[in-house]
Design a protein around this nucleic acid. Structure first.
Ligand SMILES: Nc1ccn([C@H]2C[C@H](O)[C@@H](COP(=O)(O)OP(=O)(O)OP(=O)(O)O)O2)c(=O)n1
Ligand SMILES: [Mg+2]
Ligand SMILES: [Mg+2]
Length: 917
DNA sequence: ATCCTCCCCTAC
DNA sequence: TAAGGTAGGGGAGGAT
């Protein structure tokens, strides 16, 4: 890919970045290929500095020694590097011919084996060789430090850089494969093979694996950021659009343009998407993998917390999904074959696909590296066109694509989903309803996990359910735009058109993995390096900007070490921005401002788990020039740390989290929680009853009826318990179904800080003896209503319609329909209280009513600060579901509302899972 | 009214 | 061990 600027302004763009030493230079040449070379140079320079600083000349113990450290070692890779630097040796970050010794502890490492087959492989030694040699003051014989595994027969795990861990048990569905070998290994199920039998691409990839060391944090890897971006799939797909748009613009010229729609004004839209793209590419170089359950991931361990990027359809049959932790995937599918990423291939194949699409029509809207919309109106029989295009793609790339054709983007996209894999489907306007009415609400575009839960709580599970609501109702629940588009989509209405994506509005970069700082200086350096990267990307985009935003992830107080190694774990998200007086793309300036923002946010460096810099108000938008600069002296002080964070003021939250940590280690914790929920509904009991039961029942004791009513996601959690991760969408990592009283950025879930901030409806609910609607059996939990006169003005307006309706009925207030168009209901004034500047201060109040209702309806009061109360409430709701079928729906909805908020805040439902992130 | 900031959500 | 990015849409509430 060429520099994006070259399209319109070759000279400016290229000149601005003199020699390109940035490992992220893929943004310039579109290739990951040069990456290693550049990075290696960078690392070499750093090593030289280290050596110089150490004063180690060439005359030390290790003169003439050039080590490559492979895998985990003690001493660490960094320490070994330091030893080399101080004692005349050299250190290669990547394996190459110059290496004289491979240092390796991890026995089964295939990378080493691979090199045992070179003509003159360098000796492989255990790290003790370095230590002992240093102590002895001379180089000791390497034979005393050999790795026994090198004597193993060749041909095993040659590709197993990502599958080096033997499976603890053999895959039941693949009995032929030896248990200690990955099922897909050349040796697996096929007997031993000679190394030479391994296809070339595989060897190449195995060689590339050598370039990888153990993952290291920002603390101890001088090239951390570069390494991260090189290995990050999300960076790859996230930065793809910026690259592909250049190609789309370049190639658009010589293709037939769609004609204006004929009578009826109906367009013909194609949506096309590669089938399990990354996985398909893996099969290209490994045809024997066709038909096998396959996933792409950095991790192949059955205990791994690496994410599945793409899963073959065979793997999906087992439930394997993108975003899952490998642990979960392997649990679902023990025979899962795991292959590494091949970013260069994705890049190349994607470009081919786009070239082919752009031969068919000039109107292509790129959505991602494997997906696009095309407008083919008036370009002949669309099914024939699509069929030919798919054949082109298959022939040119060896990978299959599926496609949908329809009168709108919506229908084309939905058609693709139904057509997958390797199929195509045309949907007419007439057929739209049949298609739509068979879908879950969550299948509609724009409905992700958070919205799905909100809809679920409203009793809207299907598109049909959504259709039963008025547009105004959906708008009330979801907001004006979201509600409207959901309603439109549910009715098959979609007025969007295929258009080349517009001007870029922001350019940013962020890293939320491996971020660990010892002190402020570390954080400053990290921000500075991000600033360099941002400047690079701004230059590549040919843009400068005025508004710089720093994003931070801050470890939540009391949060345990994340499940994922070097992951960010449970965090608050904070951001702070500044609008500069002038446009800039200067790394120096961005660094300075970034560091200032860092200080302004005031998060202790040790608690930072993620950092991002984003530039907005770009000069490509004429309106950006008019923005007012941030006040020189911002009145706003640094946001004080939330109470949960203040060690002087220990918060129950911490204890609660600590308990959750303990539970996470208890295999049956999740199941136990569910049982606890089912065990003791006791709707009339006082809400304040402490939960405090330590001994928890086991999974087998879960009542079948309760089990059946648990949401599928919870069932899965319970079944898989702590081995399984949720399928993780990026959004899930961040917090927030919506601003909920159960959460706030400050880290308080249900916190004491909330108590004074507002006289919430949550505390007005009580327990009474009869249902307000008179429809419940004796003992039915009901809602104690405050006198209507005590309702704050506007409360009803702020409530979700479903709750509001019930309230209005109870009060005998007529239900009026709002006039269109949608307008946000007026908000109540705040009661005051919470710490000024606390970012969650306002959020805490929003929709408190909703949860208060949920609590009140079922005889609990959700008192701010009472986490146990929330758990009790959940138990009751579960009990209510079981005992009073007519309340099952409402109880379920209420429970999910609580859990939704809890999930946002904790990353896990209350008391229902041992997993915290 | 509209802008601005600080979020949250979604999609790949 | 493992690489949890990126950009846009959108909402809420305060400032102008
Ligand atoms: N959470 C995700 C989603 C996607 N991808 C990557 C891998 C996918 O192969 C590619 C394309 O995404 P798709 O949503 O199109 O998924 P697939 O192409 O893998 O499967 P499908 O056949 O459903 O399109 O993006 C990823 O790394 N992580
Ligand atoms: Mg795809
Ligand atoms: Mg796709």
């Amino acid at each position: 890919m060429t520099d994006p600027r070259s399209r319109s302004n070759i000279h400016v763009g290229v000149k601005r970045n003199a020699p390109d030493l940035n490992p992220d230079s893929l943004h310039h040449d579109g290739s990951f290929g040069k990456y290693m070379q550049v990075k290696n140079r960078k690392l070499h320079e750093q090593f030289e500095e280290m050596a110089a600083a150490a004063g180690g000349g060439t005359g030390g113990v290790f003169a003439g020694v050039n080590v490559f450290v492979n895998g985990f070692t003690v001493p660490s890779q960094l320490e070994l590097k330091q030893i080399m630097a101080e004692n005349g040796g050299r250190f290669e970050n990547y394996y190459c011919r110059a290496v004289t010794h491979i240092v390796c502890t991890n026995l089964p490492d295939s990378k080493v084996k691979h090199h045992a087959h070179e003509r003159n492989p360098p000796p492989t030694v255990r790290p003790e060789w370095v230590v002992d040699s240093l102590a002895a003051g001379r180089l000791l014989p390497v034979t005393d430090y050999a790795l026994w595994r090198l004597r193993d027969a060749p041909g095993q795990r040659t590709l197993a850089a990502f599958a080096a861990q033997p499976l603890s048990r053999s895959a039941p569905d693949r009995p032929a494969a030896p248990a200690h070998l990955p099922a897909w290994s050349p040796a697996g199920g096929k007997g031993q093979r000679d190394q030479s039998a391994i296809p070339d691409p595989l060897a190449a990839r195995a060689a590339k694996d050598i370039l990888k060391g153990p993952p290291r944090s920002s603390r101890d890897d001088p090239a951390f950021q570069a390494t991260f971006w090189q290995a990050s799939r999300l960076h790859f797909i996230g930065s793809w659009k910026a690259r592909i748009e250049v190609l789309a613009a370049k190639l658009a010229g010589d293709a037939p343009a769609p004609k204006p729609p004929g009578r009826g004004g109906q367009r013909v839209i194609v949506h096309i998407d590669m089938d399990c793209f990354f996985a398909s590419v893996a099969v290209l170089g490994n045809p024997e993998l066709a038909g096998k359950p396959l996933a792409i991931s950095h991790s192949a361990s059955a205990r791994g917390a690496g994410e599945v990027s793409s899963a073959s359809y065979e793997a999906r049959a087992f439930g394997v999904r993108a975003g899952m932790f490998m642990e979960a995937a392997k649990a679902l599918c023990p025979g899962l074959v795991v292959m590494p990423y091949e970013f260069e291939q994705y890049e190349a194949i994607s470009e081919q696909v786009y070239r082919l699409m752009l031969q068919r029509t000039s109107c292509v809207q790129p959505l991602s590296c494997d997906e696009a919309f095309m407008d083919v109106t008036g370009l002949g029989d669309p099914e024939a066109l699509v069929s030919a295009l798919r054949a082109d793609i298959a022939a040119a790339t060896g990978c299959t694509a599926s496609a949908g054709v329809g009168p709108s983007l919506l229908l084309a996209r939905l058609a693709t989903r139904r057509a997958k894999p390797n199929g195509q489907l045309l949907v007419t306007a007439r057929e739209a309803d049949a298609l739509l009415l068979g879908l879950a609400a969550g299948d509609l575009p724009g409905v992700g996990p958070a919205t799905r839960e909100r809809l679920d709580a409203l009793g809207i599970k299907s598109v049909a359910d959504a259709r039963a609501r008025t547009k105004a109702a959906l708008q009330r629940e979801l907001g004006g735009k979201t509600g409207a588009s959901l309603w439109d989509y549910a009715h098959g209405r979609d007025t969007r058109e295929v258009e080349p994506s517009g001007m870029r509005k922001t350019v940013g970069c962020e890293i939320n993995y491996g971020v660990r700082f010892d002190g402020q200086a570390d954080a400053d350096r990290f921000v500075d390096e991000l600033a360099v990267q941002l400047a690079e990307r701004l230059a590549a985009a040919g843009a400068r900007g005025r508004t710089l935003t720093l994003k931070l992830k801050r470890r939540k107080a009391g949060a345990p070490e994340p499940r994922k190694f070097l992951g960010h774990g449970i965090c608050d998200n904070l951001s702070r921005s500044v609008t500069l007086p002038r446009f800039t793309d200067s790394a120096k300036e961005l660094g300075r401002e970034g560091r200032a923002l860092l200080r302004a946010v005031g998060v202790p460096a040790r608690d930072i788990r993620g950092v991002g810099l984003t530039m907005a108000k770009l000069d490509s938008d004429p309106a950006s020039g008019a923005a007012r600069p941030t006040n020189a002296k911002p009145a706003k002080l640094a946001a004080p740390p939330p109470s949960a964070y203040n060690p002087r003021e220990p918060h129950p939250w911490n204890d609660w989290l600590a308990q959750k940590m303990a539970e996470e280690r208890c295999a049956d914790a999740a199941a136990a929680a569910a049982v606890a929920a089912a065990a003791e509904p006791s709707p009339g009991a006082a809400a304040a009853t402490p939960v405090g039961r330590a001994a928890l029942p086991s999974l087998s004791e879960i009542d079948a009826a309760v089990w059946a009513e648990l949401p599928e996601s919870v069932q899965r959690d319970l079944l898989l318990q702590r081995q399984l991760a949720h399928p993780r969408s990026p959004a899930r990592a961040a917090v927030g179904l919506r601003r909920s009283p159960l959460r706030q950025a400050g880290g308080l879930a249900i916190g004491p800080g909330a108590g004074g901030s507002r006289a919430g409806t949550g505390s007005r609910a009580g327990v009474v003896d009869a249902d307000a609607e008179g429809r419940a059996a004796a003992g039915t939990p009901i809602l104690a209503l405050p006198p209507a006169s005590q309702l704050e003005p506007g409360v009803l307006d702020a409530l979700p319609l479903s709750v509001r309706r019930e309230l209005e009925r109870a009060y005998g207030i007529g239900v009026g329909f709002r006039a269109m168009p949608f307008k946000s209901p007026p908000k109540r004034r705040r009661g005051g209280g919470g710490s000024i500047g606390d970012p969650g201060d306002d959020a805490r109040e929003r929709r408190l009513d909703e949860l208060g209702m949920a609590a009140g309806e079922f005889g609990a009061s959700l008192v701010p600060g009472d986490l146990e109360g929330a758990q009790l409430l959940l138990r009751r709701l579960a009990g209510a579901r079981m005992r009073w079928p007519r309340f099952a729906a409402r109880a379920s909805a209420a429970a999910q509302r609580v859990q939704a908020a809890a999930r946002r805040e904790l990353g896990a439902p209350l008391a229902l899972t041992g997993r915290l992130d």
